[in-house]
Amino acid sequence: MLRVEHLTKVYDTGTVALKDVSFTVEDGEFLIIIGLSGSGKSTLLRSINRLIEPTEGRIVWNDIDITALDEAGLRRVRREIGFVFQEFNLVERLPVLTNVLAGRLGYVNPWWSLFYYFPPQDQRRALDALAQVGLAEKAHNRASALSGGQKQRVGIARALVQNPKMLLADEPVASLDPVLAHSIMGYLERLNQERGITILCSLHYLDLVQRYATRVIGLRDGRLVYEGTGEDIRNMTDEEFKQIYGEEAQRLGG
């Protein structure tokens, strides 16, 4: 169980990205975070594994206070939390396989990393993960040679080899076309349902939210303004919509 308590983030520039955000995520949930660009979705996700240091508040995961961890403790927690990025964030000049193997960095002896060495079982695990996302034959290509959808699948494979209990996905499909978006979301759903991995994912498209979410929270200007289930989104009122997306927002389709 993940508990976010009174989370606040103020950047050095003075921007208040998150303001007193509290919510709880049960194990095995598929939580989707919605909100406009700049509403604090990325900051929230990055605060959970402290890629961004929260200014105030606590994040407690399975009774571990992540916000109070020292560096070593933080690394141990991070390796159990996968992260999938909008821009994939692969190391373009390295082979696909190495990019996936990077997911094991939290587990291997750091000195081996000086020589880019990974134990054989890690290599097998990485190849397995690549096969699961259907990219086994690309293992030795450079990451830069892949298309956008392939890159995101490598990103998911990298998160997979971490053997994560939780997966954070920051707009994982925003850079992809609708068909690819569904296939990537499909991978995430399978992980959620087959392996019971808790997923926190920020999204823009409400149809995807309706399709995949078990729970939804909405952020606006760094505040939590909406909480509901995937079912609730389908029955969302215009007021609720405007609460999340602002007074000028128009609902299209529905």
């Binding site: 990055r46 560096e71 991070r78 390796r79 964030n89 190391v91 997911g103 960095l105 880019y116």
Partner: peptide
Amino acid sequence: HPGPIEAIQSTGANRLQTIMF
């Protein structure tokens, strides 16, 4: 690009590993 640094850090890599990867 700061992206790959974020990605490597979030796998639990330490500073040396982040630099290497």
